[in-house]
């Protein structure tokens, strides 16, 4: 399955004036590819998976998803979004139930997917009994149960603590290798993108445009602490620096940016000074 976006624009009605979230986006995702989209916060990158999933329509341009017989792409969010009234297993079975798959088959698929994300012994637990990383793994199992051709992941690990995130990076690489799914992964974290993806697309601050493309050709499984990876991430960060600052400037009052190594001398709260 292939995803193709051609000249896609997405505009929203802002409070005062219309806001352009995405501007003239053109991209292709090959079958089985792991593609990461990186951009500063508020660049409209989270709109993109919604467009591909069909939860939003582009204002202009087309989003072509050759879904074929295999069904639609499935989204995974920053928060796991598990249904609190269902057990972990029932959550994983949710999409299958909607599709009226018989109970025995549902259970079989659910347990298989829970095995893949290593949560089988928590099948009967309730979502609130899981840790953040476990919830996110359950959400991945829930998406994979539908055997979607594409996984769309919208900052799925952003709310996890650093250690759990490292583990999830390893886990996701393993799951990707084992299942061969196409993955479109959105993040603001350059290192995360470089760690996970074959190809990284860098996006500009609002309006979101695709600025650059970086190919990552490092052996897997990769770890964020790998020095070679840090080098690639640095290159990507240098490309993005202006954009990140531009985005920050929009979100802060003026005068927020201090020269490196120097905080403003006056003002309350500044106490420490070298004798």
């Amino acid at each position: 399955m292939k995803i193709e976006l051609r000249g896609v624009w997405r505009e929203f009605n802002g409070q005062q004036r219309p806001v352009t979230a995405l501007e003239d986006i053109g991209l292709e995702v090959e079958e089985g590819e792991f593609l990461c989209l990186v951009g500063p916060s508020g660049c409209g990158k989270s709109t993109l998976p919604d467009l591909v999933a069909g939860l939003q329509e582009p204002s202009r341009g087309e989003s072509i998803v050759n879904s074929g017989a295999h069904g639609a792409p499935v989204l995974i969010f920053q928060e796991a979004g598990l249904f609190p009234w269902l057990t972990v297993r029932d959550n994983v079975e949710f999409g299958l139930r909607v599709r009226r798959i018989p109970r025995a088959r549902r259970r079989e698929i659910a347990m298989e997917q829970l095995g893949l994300v290593r949560l089988q012994q928590f099948a009967e637990a309730l979502p609130h009994q899981l840790s953040g990383g476990m919830k996110q793994r359950a959400a991945i199992a829930r998406a994979l149960a539908l055997d979607p051709p594409v996984l769309l992941m919208d900052e799925p690990f952003a709310a996890l603590d650093a250690q759990t995130r490292d583990i999830m990076h390893q886990e996701l690489q393993r799951i990707w290798t084992e299942t061969g799914k196409t993955i479109l992964f959105v993040t603001h974290n350059v290192r995360e993108a470089v760690c996970l993806a074959d190809r990284v697309l860098l996006m500009t601050a609002r309006p979101g445009r695709i600025k650059d493309e970086i190919f990552v050709d490092l052996p897997r499984p990769r770890s964020v602490s790998n020095p070679e990876l840090a080098e690639v991430a640095q290159v990507a960060l240098d490309h993005l620096r202006d954009e990140i600052q531009k985005a920050e400037r929009e979100e802060f009052d003026s005068g927020w940016l201090y020269p490196e190594g120097r905080l403003p001398a006056s003002g309350p709260g500044v106490v420490a000074s070298p004798r």
Partner: peptide
Amino acid sequence: LLLKAGQTLGAQGLLLSLRVTLP
């Protein structure tokens, strides 16, 4: 988020109401 999750898993219309919104 729960509605979006239900939608991306294929529930729409009445099914979304019964399986997600009401519970």
